[in-house]
Design a protein around this nucleic acid. Structure first.
Lengths: 208, 208
DNA sequence: GGTTCTGCTGTAACACAGTTACAGGAGGAG
DNA sequence: CTCCTCCTGTAACTGTGTTACAGCAGAACC
C-alpha cells in the first residue's frame, strides 16, 4: 500500500473534527490515532503532546477570527456590525471558543475587533485616554456578552428557573415585568440594546 | 484508635481546599482520600463519583453567593455597589468560579443580584417589559465583565501584546491613545465607568 | 552498490486516573 | 448472640497520557 505521509495539518484537522463534534474531553490520543489510521506515537511525533495539540487548535481558532469588515453609516452602527459578526463566528464553534476562554486567550481573539473599535471611536472624534477608555469599555462589554451568552446556551435545567423567583412577590406589583423576565431572553436583542446604549452614552457624553 | 466518622461535609471541605489551592485538575480521588486519611471507596460512598463531587462544590459556591446588601442613594449607585460586591466575592475563588462557569451556572449564581437589580430598576420608575430589558442588559454586562476580567487575569504572556498592535499606525496620530491602550487596563475603573454609562443611559432614556 | 542518516511509524510498556466487586468491621436492634 | 445497616478497606478493571525502544523507507553520501 502506498505510504501516505501524515502531516501535522492532518492531525490538527482530525482533532478539530473530534473537538467540534463532542468537545475536548472526547479527544483522546488513541481515538485520534484510530481516526487517522495510525499509531499513537505518530501523533506525539507531530504535535508533541495533548496539551500542545489543544493549544494548536486554539491558536488556529484565534487566527481564523481575523478578517472583520465594519458596516454601517454611523460609528455606533459600525461597532454594532462588528460585534454581531463576531457573535456569529463564535456561535459556530462553541467548544473551541470555550477552550480559548479556558486558556485566557479570549481577549487576544478579539484584538482585530479592538482595532476596528479604535478606528470608530477615533472617527467619532474622541482622542487620547478618553478614547482608550471607551474602547476598553465596549470591548469588555462585547466580549463579556458573548461569554454570558455561551454560558446560557450550555446552562442545564435552570433550576430554580428565573420565573420561580419573581412570581410570588412581583407578579402582583408588575405582572408585565414578571412575564417578561419569565420569558427566555433574546440575546441578540439584549446585545444590540446594550451596545447601542453604552456606545451612545460614551460617545455622546464626549460630543455634548 | 477512636473511629472518627467521615462525613460528606468533611469530604466537600477537603475537596474545596484542594480545588481552591491548585484547581480542579489537581483534585484526584486518591489524593483526596489520602488527604482525609481514608480509602478511596469511602469517598465514593459519600459523594457518588467525581463529577457529583465537583457539582456539589459548585452548588455550595452558588449558595454562598447569596446575601447582597445594596448601598448608596441613587439607583445607579446601588446597582454599582451590588456589582462591586459580587466582583470582590468572585475574585476570592477563581477556580470555583471557573467551575461554575464551565457548568453553565454563572447566571444562576447571579440571581440574587438580579433580584436587587429588579428592585432598583423598579425604584427608578421603570415598569413592564422595558424594566425587564434593562435588568437583563445590566445583568449581562456585569456577569460578562466579571468573566472577561477573570479571563484577563489568567491570560498568559499576552503575545502579541496589545501595545504591539497600535504602535506603528496609531502612535503618530494619537500617542496619548496608544499609550493608554499600552497600559494594562484597570478593570475596576472600566467596570464602574461602563455600568454607570449603561445604567445611566437606560434609566435616563426612560425618564426623559 | 553499500552505508549511514534522517524522518517517521509501530510495539509494548509505564504510571496514574476513575470506578467498582467484594469482603469485611462497628455498633445498635431484636 | 445474632442480624442488619452503615461505612471502610483490598484489589482489581478499564482507559488515559506518555515514552523507551526497535524498526522501516528513502534520501544522501562515499
Amino acid at each position: 500500500m502506498p505510504r501516505v505521509q501524515l502531516t501535522r495539518e492532518d492531525v490538527l484537522d482530525a482533532a478539530t473534527r473530534l473537538v467540534v463534534q463532542h468537545g475536548p474531553q472526547d479527544l483522546t490520543m488513541r481515538k485520534l490515532a484510530a481516526e487517522l489510521g495510525t499509531a499513537v506515537t505518530s501523533i506525539y511525533w507531530h504535535v508533541g503532546n495533548r496539551e500542545s495539540l489543544l493549544d494548536a487548535l486554539v491558536e488556529r481558532t484565534v487566527q481564523e477570527m481575523g478578517a472583520l469588515v465594519p458596516r454601517g453609516r454611523t460609528p455606533v452602527d459600525r461597532v454594532v456590525s462588528v460585534a454581531r459578526a463576531l457573535r456569529r463566528e463564535l456561535r459556530a464553534r462553541p467548544h473551541l471558543i470555550a477552550m480559548v476562554h479556558e486558556r485566557g486567550l479570549t481577549e487576544r481573539m478579539f484584538l482585530p475587533a479592538q482595532q476596528a473599535l479604535v478606528h470608530e471611536v477615533h472617527a467619532a472624534g474622541l482622542r487620547g485616554a478618553r478614547a482608550a477608555g471607551v474602547v476598553r469599555a465596549v470591548q469588555f462589554q462585547v466580549v463579556g456578552h458573548v461569554l454570558v451568552e455561551r454560558n446560557r446556551e450550555r446552562s442545564p435545567v435552570q433550576s430554580p428557573a428565573e420565573a420561580d423567583l419573581w412570581s410570588p412577590d412581583l407578579a402582583e406589583h408588575d405582572p408585565a415585568l414578571a412575564r417578561a423576565l419569565a420569558r427566555p431572553a433574546d440575546p441578540e436583542r439584549v446585545f444590540v440594546v446594550s451596545v447601542r446604549a453604552l456606545v451612545g452614552a460614551l460617545l455622546g457624553a464626549a460630543a455634548g
